[in-house]
Amino acid sequence: MGQSGYRLCADGTFFVSGLWHGANWNFVVFGLLHGVALSVEFLLKKKRKNWSKKFGFYYDILSNMATFSYFTFSVIFFRANSLGQALNFLKKLFDFSAYDFGQLMHLDVAFLYNVAVGIPLILLLVIFEKAELNEKLVSIFNKKRALRFALYTFALIQIGLFGVFLNQNDFIYFQF
């Protein structure tokens, strides 16, 4: 299969998987965004290898951030009730008027908590993902029960501190 075939398949698959989430234009856009991302990734395969060799760690960090940002952007279309709502959300996102900035000054504890906690947790995920690729670390983890216990306990405490246990219907898969 040539490059065009691969891209067509990727776009088609994600278009269908988008529709699987719901018969709405926002899900179509969500699926297409993922299809396009995969196609671009495929097209830049050789270049990305070169960039990775050239810039190493910095490239990894930047590509992680770009992937995360792009995914988060796509989730706007996934979570919105309609395409119009998603576009309105994007419009508001880039509205830096005085009123919205003023609102920032009155954020309550729960909102600040989200911001203060969300960023370190994302960094923690990146660290764990990297550690998982290190065979030596994985081997130590498998051999040391105390370490496993400590990490599992840590993970459970994180769930206790940051999990969502109220209004579980808000979690999208519980709506199906």
Binding site: L112, Y113, V117, I159, G160, L161, F162, F165, L166
Partner: peptide
């Protein structure tokens, strides 16, 4: 800790720090 986990938006780490 069940009550603090369930209501962690009110009584989570942020409120502890506060």
């Amino acid at each position: 800790f069940y009550r603090y986990a369930k209501f962690n938006f009110d009584w989570g780490l942020g409120m502890y720090a506060n």
